[in-house]
Design a protein around this nucleic acid. Structure first.
Lengths: 367, 367
DNA sequence: GGAATCTGGTGTAACGATGCACCAGATCTT
DNA sequence: AAGATCTGGTGCATCGTTACACCAGATTCC
């Protein structure tokens, strides 16, 4: 069980440990091919694997990236975490998983701990408007990649942000409903305090006004404005919204934009509670395209985030930053989301439908 | 930014680095309280945090556990991964995340790599009948915890297995349907090759025979017996099964036990394709109780796995093994699953229902 | 009263890889 | 021909922690 070390390799190849180290670290400019081959053969034959701990101790950094998500229990974050791991693996890195439960204090603790452990890069999934809770580590030199949160004016300049363009997302979702002929469209969300939720709402407003309608005249509902919420609560919020919007106290909507798929699903359930049919009676569009969206009955129209691309970008930034330092700091990358049309959105009931949306999920995805 | 080391602490407390190390590692038997307090105060004041890399290099083991799941993109594994991280955090450990995609070769590569990196313990989520692909590492001394896979006769004796009792699960699910009055119950699954899938099937058979019925007379379907499958395919399998079972070519079932929730959801969709209503026309019960089960329309009755308890157990084994060595090796822990009754299971249509299942999800869960 | 034992620590050699400073020998300049 | 430069490497101190071996001084034993 004695580990084969760099010394063993050196001995077997008839060179010094330094040369082996040089090869391992790509300092091969001034190494004659014959030597190189001897070393490579020795590594192969002895089945040598570098010791990470020693490497890290000496060099000061890991081959590990930290991933801080609200909770991998949430299907969206689970799917994202998977893509991150795939992308990291492709670059020879491992992923350390952390669940913040959306608590700023946990985010801070995780980030500090990872940073002190010499983690190579950190992908922080947060939608907090301010990054001041992790400002300390950033000031000390940490290069942070935030996800699901576009850059803010007050962000430290070294932070790279990756997100979809939520404004466009909100606009696409709303326009889709408008094109189907809807004129009373509700926006369903709990607190809009987070930066991406408010951006989606802004997109919703823009689309409505661009269509010559007024946001003020839309059916709205202000039941829950609670601060933050988890997955289960997100569904409850949607359900409560449906109950409130269709209690007969005001003009009911014919369609709704939900802040995410879980809320959309809760809303759909609320509709069912009220004896209404999703799609036929009331159209619903969500955000994220989690796996359940396609499995739901009826399959849910939603705004898809290109998570694989985003994960690749985030991992790239997290790993390469250390090397490239400063070069292009403070970048903010906004990707374009796309609407995936399924069956939960249809033309409104007793109004002249401009077109019939009978695209099935699979066709829309282009599989 | 210069790291505060154990030396700094020693200097501040007026002791030797050895003493600080002794305190840090719990060797306090022969340390006078006054000294101890001085050291603790120094640690506090300097904000000292031990360097993991150095620690690991010297001691040979990490504060990290490896988690190998098929894919965190799958809601069940995502939820489990979250519980594992919570449990590990409570014990001062981090979690390194790996997605095997159910490929034996990836499982092997990950396990070998983690083990060579001195990872403290590994939780391998696999349902492969044999562990020979990781036998090498186990022979070298790795203590492995497998999850979702009960112990097998050929397993190396040092392996600890944690799983639900799938036989009981299969029996509970089937009995639930029988008690509702169903007499034609299908079992829906792709390949039964994996150990837990076949155990569930066995439970299904036992329940049926115990009720005085015969498995041979049950509607069955042998469309897909493909080897392994992923999440999307799992849904497709369910959907295809529904199409096949209700194509009029044989006696159709009035209820079905699906191998997991995703397959159940696919089956539900297939029923809808055929113009049938889940719950009212055909009852469906799944396995796992993923979050989507409760959000589905109608909410899905399912067999819940106690993932939080299982995660805690698995983490405990993975961490404590190193210390306890051999003591209780080869354990196999089987937890008891429970049926969560929701709305997808109802008494059969035109038959005398023995009782009406009008328990709602929330009541059944006991929230 | 001298040896044995106990108490509360300390000294120090690793753990394995890294990368700067350095160095022989060969080749090039002028 | 002798210094300068280049080529292809090597020597060695070092990262921060650990844990075994060891050691003074105090106490106990016969």
């Amino acid at each position: 069980m004695a580990r084969t070390t760099i010394q063993d390799v050196a001995r077997a190849a008839g060179v010094s440990p330094s040369s082996v180290s040089n090869l391992l670290n790509g300092r091969t400019e001034r190494m004659v091919p014959a030597t190189r081959e001897r070393i490579e053969r020795a590594i192969e034959e002895l089945g040598y694997r570098p010791n990470r701990a020693a490497r890290q101790l000496r060099s000061g950094h890991t081959q590990t990236i930290g991933l801080v998500v609200p909770s991998v229990g949430n299907p969206f974050w689970g799917a994202f975490a998977r893509e991150v791991e795939v992308a990291a693996q492709a670059k020879g890195c491992n992923v350390l998983l952390c669940n913040s439960e959306r608590e700023p204090d946990r985010e801070r603790r995780y980030v500090e701990e990872l940073w002190e452990d010499g983690i190579r890069g950190i992908i922080l999934c947060t939608s907090l408007p301010s990054l001041e809770h992790v400002a300390g580590s950033i000031k000390d030199g940490l290069r942070l990649v935030t996800f699901d949160r576009p850059a803010q004016p007050d962000d430290p300049s070294s932070v790279v942000s990756i997100s979809i363009d939520n404004g466009i997302g909100g606009r696409l979702a709303t326009s889709h409903l408008i094109e189907l002929g809807h004129e009373r469209i509700a926006f369903v969300s709990a607190s809009i305090r987070s930066v991406n939720r408010s951006a989606r709402y802004r997109g919703y407003c823009e689309a409505i006004e661009q269509a010559g309608m007024s946001v003020a005249s839309m059916p709205s509902w202000t039941g829950v404005t609670a601060a933050e919420f988890g997955d289960v609560e997100a569904a409850d919020v949607g359900r409560a919204a449906a109950h409130a919007l269709f209690d007969g106290s005001g003009p009911a909507p014919t369609a709704a934009v939900a802040i995410n798929d879980i809320t959309a699903l809760g809303f759909a359930r609320g509709l069912r509670d009220m004896g209404l049919k999703v799609g036929e009676d009331v159209s619903v569009i969500g955000f994220d395209d989690i796996i359940l969206a396609d499995l739901y009955d009826p399959p849910l129209t939603t705004v898809r985030q290109p998570i694989a691309d985003m994960a690749r970008l985030a991992v790239g930034e997290a790993i390469e930053r250390a090397a490239a330092e400063d070069e292009q700091a403070g970048r903010s990358v906004l990707l374009r989301p796309e609407v995936v049309v399924r069956e939960s959105t249809q033309p409104p009931r007793n109004e002249g439908p401009k077109q019939r949306a009978n695209v099935t999920a699979r066709e829309a995805i282009g599989k």
